[in-house]
Amino acid sequence: MSINGWFPLALSDAITAGSSAGAIVKGLEVVVWRDDAGNAHAWEDRCPHRGMKMSFGFVRGDHIACLYHGWQYGVDGQCQKIPAHPELDVPKSICVNTYGAAEAGGMIWAALGEAGDAPTLPDATAVRSLYIEVPLNTALAALPSAVGAKGFTPEGPVARLDSRWGMLLVGLQEIGETSCALHIAVAGRATPETCAQIAMAAARLRDDVEAGVAA
């Protein structure tokens, strides 16, 4: 499957400085991590040494290290240090496959394949990411009624919904054929109470579509 475009991987505030997480886009494994300077990065989730997932690794300063043998990669994906060979001038050929990364609408995005321009979205308050064990289209079909919207406007991997809490921006992540993630943000500023209500409605949506209750 060829994957081309910008895809949401996580809510911006879920990836704190100095941490990493795994995300899967249509079967493609991606690590998303944030360095201590606050910049987000999206790479192939694979250490070129032994194939270990980089998302199991650990972030220190401006590099991420593999959990297996501690190979350290800088923000350009280039291996800088191999702890077992501290004197070695690491060859340039040892690097992780990197993707473009951007933050918009309260989410972190990765540019995969022929991606084009980064998404432009209004400022938003991140609410929560929802992981659901159903096809993306099943979750999407049930989304408007769950948030009191009449429908949604799809813009590639984002759905805009005029909900009872204002304009929702929902990043759409197709993990595989039977699982997906919805990254939910509300445009502008939202109170904690509003965020809590949206988060609870989202959890009900997840539980209903997995139980086959919602259409």
Partner: peptide, 14 residues
């Protein structure tokens, strides 16, 4: 069960 699908737990665990 991977940790990907539990963002709040992941940050809490840290």
């Amino acid at each position: 069960i991977d940790h990907d699908a539990f963002p709040a737990l992941r940050n809490w665990a840290r």
